[in-house]
């Protein structure tokens, strides 16, 4: 029994830490949002300390992850790290909507960086009494997902009936294009060389057959692919070299084996067995068995 109070004491700081987490919504920004002047994220937190009357919250952002990246001293109002100077009428559970551009600026994030960048979100409680010390009461992490996929390569293009079947391989990472994970999607574009017919696009993963459909038979298409990271960084990813082999990129009214067999006048029409004689097999098997059993008995 003597151990229980000690165990409770050990658990209490853990509870306090769990309450002091800033949960941003959304949790990340891609390249487009990073450089946007309108994108916002809402910080939600429950303070580890109850605010007093007249206290204010001050919000800041630093490069890094979580509480350990937050400055131990409260940034001055209007300093470069501060994203919200003084949030008045604070409550234990509170929130604030912040422009992503402010977070990016405060943490010194370059939106064109090749790699993803985490940013620590820090909420300080600044007491009204100048004799009290301001403290960090909640912290969290907001991610700038900046990596873009490198240019993919086109492994193969197989012509089909009014379609092209394209297999894409992920490109190798470069110093500026680092998104090469399996969660990268590839958009294949089939554009008619002659200018007739519509351009088709279709999305899939590397190694998967991606089909450009509704194409015009007999028209040659230029096929390219471009990657899009899981965060949606796609438009800046480099496109593959076009696949220009004339035979491979020209859809034709291909027919397979079954169509060829039928066109040649084949008699089989599919289905299970043909006519009454098809049922002879199981019937004969059952009769044979009955005969065997009768002989045994």
């Amino acid at each position: 029994m003597a151990r229980r109070p000690a165990l409770l004491l050990l658990l209490l700081p853990g509870v306090a830490l769990a309450q002091a987490t800033v949960r941003p919504d959304p949790t990340y920004a891609n390249r487009a949002n990073c450089s946007s002047t309108t994108a916002q994220t809402t910080w939600n937190w429950t303070s580890g300390t109850s605010p007093g009357t007249g206290d204010v919250y001050r919000l800041a952002a630093y490069a890094g992850s979580g509480a350990s990246a937050c400055s131990s001293t409260v940034p001055a109002a209007g300093s470069s790290a501060t994203v919200e100077n003084d949030l008045t009428s604070p409550t234990l559970t509170d929130s604030a909507t912040i422009f992503v551009a402010n977070i990016q600026s405060a943490a010194g994030v370059n939106c064109l960086d090749a790699n993803d960048k985490p940013v620590a979100l820090c909420v300080y409680l600044v007491p009204v009494a100048s004799t009290s010390t301001a403290t960090l009461v909640a912290a969290g992490t907001f991610d700038f997902w900046l990596a873009v996929p490198p240019a993919p390569t086109l492994s193969s293009v197989v012509p089909a009936n009014a379609a092209l079947k394209v297999t894409v391989a992920a490109g190798a990472a470069t110093s500026t294009e680092t998104a090469v994970g399996s969660d990268v999607n590839y958009t294949v574009t089939c554009r008619p060389n002659s200018g007739t017919g519509a351009t088709a696009t279709k999305t899939g993963n590397a190694g998967q057959v991606i089909t450009c459909g509704d194409l015009q038979n007999g028209v040659q298409y230029t096929v390219t692919a471009r990657g899009t990271s899981a965060a949606g960084n796609g438009n800046v990813g480099a496109a593959s070299a076009p696949y220009t082999d004339a035979t491979a990129t020209t859809p034709l009214p291909f027919v397979g084996f079954w169509e060829t067999y039928q066109a040649d006048g084949g008699v089989d029409q599919g289905g299970c067995g043909t006519g009454g004689r098809g049922a002879l097999a199981p019937a004969a098997a059952i009769l044979a068995l009955l005969g065997l059993r009768r002989r045994r008995s």
Binding site: W258, D268, G270, G271
Partner: peptide, 25 residues
């Protein structure tokens, strides 16, 4: 019988669908 990764289908003289699958004894 598959064409393009799917069970092949044709139309017979009367316009009925003929699927490329079955069982033969």
């Amino acid at each position: 019988a598959n064409t393009g990764g799917q069970v092949a289908t044709t139309l017979n003289a009367s316009g009925a669908e003929v699927r490329g699958q079955g069982g033969t004894f």
